[in-house]
Design a protein around this nucleic acid. Structure first.
Lengths: 245, 245
DNA sequence: CGTGTTATTGACCAACATCAAACTTAGTGG
DNA sequence: CCACTAAGTTTGATGTTGGTCAATAACACG
């Protein structure tokens, strides 16, 4: 999957959303992709920038975030390999959030012009992009509910469920076990908690036998209970007919 | 604006986003719109439904919401006349949120098939819809920051700023004054607070001379300070060159 | 006028933040 | 391989914010 087709995973992901014509796939692979390696912590899209390119996460793990007035960061969403995290910039001139790599990663930058032209040429591709944006919005909705209405332990449980299901779907989870490259401080920025409270909530999840962690490697011990605690129903991820239980 | 062209406001709103060709506008107005009157409190789209039509808010005020496991409601966003709140349903089969009228309202329902056909026919229209969905996403991002990172008074101040600017842009605010048809309980469902705390926070905003309210009619007394308190910058609303100060 | 809904108040409490220190881990260079 | 460092995790003590419960007051509507 590596050097040859930088957009292979994007294409694969789009196809799980909507079948693509051969022509559309060929078009994707003929795009002029500038591949850039970034390091952990690099903000490869900055809040407020006005990029002329859109990016695709080729491999690695990234997060979209915004910074509140007090300087505190809020993570808006995760991005896994194959995601196109800023289709936004295609139509909105100003990036209203930054994107930061959480691991060393490779990013593909594609000129807006080419992408727009391709989208116009292949209607199925255009639909797939739209649908993918709608799924992202659906995840944002659930995030708002999670932060607005759930307690610390529910939020964390819910977050672990979401991450597990998405990593699993992305081929990055082994059984009930996965690596989540975020510090506890960063986890707090995801669910809107202080890092101290994240720590204590994690301990509670462990104490109750729901998860197990060493370092940044986490294992789900009791999926069914974790799901119930986190009030998690994977429907909002729109991952197709697969059901995770 | 009333009987003749149910989609007049939608067209107007789309045009503030992207100029539309005459053909596209004609196409819009030839759509087969089923207009329905709903009452305050009516949930005209239910969470989990699988509608075959998309809706447009012709007049009135509506909110999109989700319900958490505990039965508590979280409001995701406001919708004003001219909004198309569920373009989602065009591509995602299951509505992952409900929509409820906050005032008596008129809703236009348009068959998915017609809308999809029209979108395919007029590229500018398709772009306008996409852009409008991206703006909604941008608002969701700010909502997540608001709920995740700000204190009660900041959240409320921010919400009033957003509502004021949007109502103003929609022609529904008079000077610094507007009607917001939500109970304090509902305001709490917007910003993730209990209704008691909403009440106390409102009092604080009044005490500090930032706003003034009688009933559901609110007036902004000190826009500049309200904006600072709420950490509000209208950029994320993408309302075009207009600047609100 | 009643009657139901919404707003307001008070008392109390739980959840979560903050601060500061100790401990662990992983990484780095000698 | 070890010492050193920096980053992240864990702990305790304490304070604040905001939630809950329950009662009362103000409105709105028929």
């Amino acid at each position: 999957m590596s050097a040859g087709q930088p957009l292979a995973r994007l294409a694969a992901q789009l196809e799980t959303i909507t079948p693509l014509s051969e022509a559309a796939k060929r078009g994707l692979h003929q795009l002029n992709v500038r591949v850039v390696r970034v390091d952990e912590g690099d903000e490869f899209i900055r809040e407020g920038a006005q990029p002329q390119e859109s990016c695709v996460l080729i491999d690695g793990f990234a997060c979209r975030y915004k910074v509140a007035g007090g300087g505190q960061r809020q993570i808006l969403s995760f991005n896994l390999p194959g995601d196109a995290p800023d289709l936004h910039s295609l139509y909105l001139s100003r990036a209203d959030h930054g994107i930061v790599a959480m691991t060393p990663a490779r990013i593909g930058f594609i000129p807006h012009r080419e992408l727009l032209a391709l989208k116009r040429l292949h209607h199925d591709l255009s639909e797939a992009f739209w649908k993918s944006a709608l799924i992202q919005a659906s995840i944002l909705h659930e995030t708002i509910v999670n932060i607005g209405r759930r307690t610390a332990i529910q939020r964390m449980a819910h977050m672990f469920c979401e991450i597990y299901v998405r990593l699993q779907h992305n081929g990055q989870a082994d059984r009930r076990s996965f690596r989540l490259p975020l510090s506890q401080a960063a986890l707090g920025e995801v669910v809107g908690l202080s890092c101290v409270h994240v720590n204590r909530t994690l301990q509670q999840l462990r104490r109750e036998g729901l998860i197990e962690s060493k370092g940044r490697h986490h294992t789900i011990r009791d999926w069914d209970r974790l799901r119930r605690v986190g009030d998690f129903d994977a429907a909002y991820l729109h991952l197709g007919p697969a059901n995770f239980e």
